[in-house]
């Protein structure tokens, strides 16, 4: 991780899923990046299956997809942080996030890890987090959703 200007990161990409961890990771990135010359980019990926063309007018018309980024922007505003929001359509969420982080030369990628309480509770690790951990060309932070008493 670069240590220039004592910054933890220079440019961080925050992967938003629309889940409960979004607020935590946006707040974390904005607070760490505040008052330094850093950039925080929130990326939300809308996954399209192969029956739909990749450039189909899906995400732009999806209020839900827009709302994920707008909510992140609201959280960033509340902690006086700067957040650039990017909405992406792709076939695979993990690959798109890593590609976006690489294209923007990010030195940190932050992802949330939701916790499912059903069936005794477990982390919904999915495919995106392992892919990012394996393939990202930068540091990757995975922030888990608070569990048990932490969530209260």
């Amino acid at each position: 991780m670069p240590e220039a200007n004592n910054a933890i990161f220079r440019r961080a990409v925050v992967a938003l899923s629309g889940g409960p961890t979004d607020a935590t990771i946006v707040r974390l990135a904005c607070e760490l990046g505040r008052s330094r010359h850093t950039e925080v980019i929130a990326v939300h990926v809308v996954e399209l299956d192969w029956t739909v063309p990749l450039d189909a007018d899906v995400a732009e018309r999806s209020e839900e997809a827009q709302r994920v980024l707008d909510a992140a922007e609201g959280i960033a505003d509340s902690v006086h942080g700067n957040l650039e929001c990017v909405l992406v359509q792709a076939r695979d969420v993990g690959a798109a996030i890593v590609d976006e982080a690489a294209a923007r030369e990010a030195d940190l990628l932050i992802l949330g890890l939701p916790y499912r309480t059903r069936f005794g509770g477990d982390f919904a690790i999915g495919r995106a987090v392992p892919y990012a951990l394996k393939s990202a060309p930068c540091a990757v932070w995975v922030v888990r959703e608070p569990i048990g008493e932490e969530s209260q």
Binding site: V45, V46, L54, D55, A59, E60, E63, Q66, R67, L69, D70, A71, E73, G74, C85, V86, L87, V88, Q89, A90, R91, D92, A95, A96, V98, D99, E100, A102, A103, S135
Partner: peptide, 24 residues
Amino acid sequence: LRGRKLGDRRVVVDRPHSAYFRYA
């Protein structure tokens, strides 16, 4: 946009409302 993996593609979608409005 091309991805790192062969055949990977992604499209960055415009958000024309974002300069003026925020969905709540």
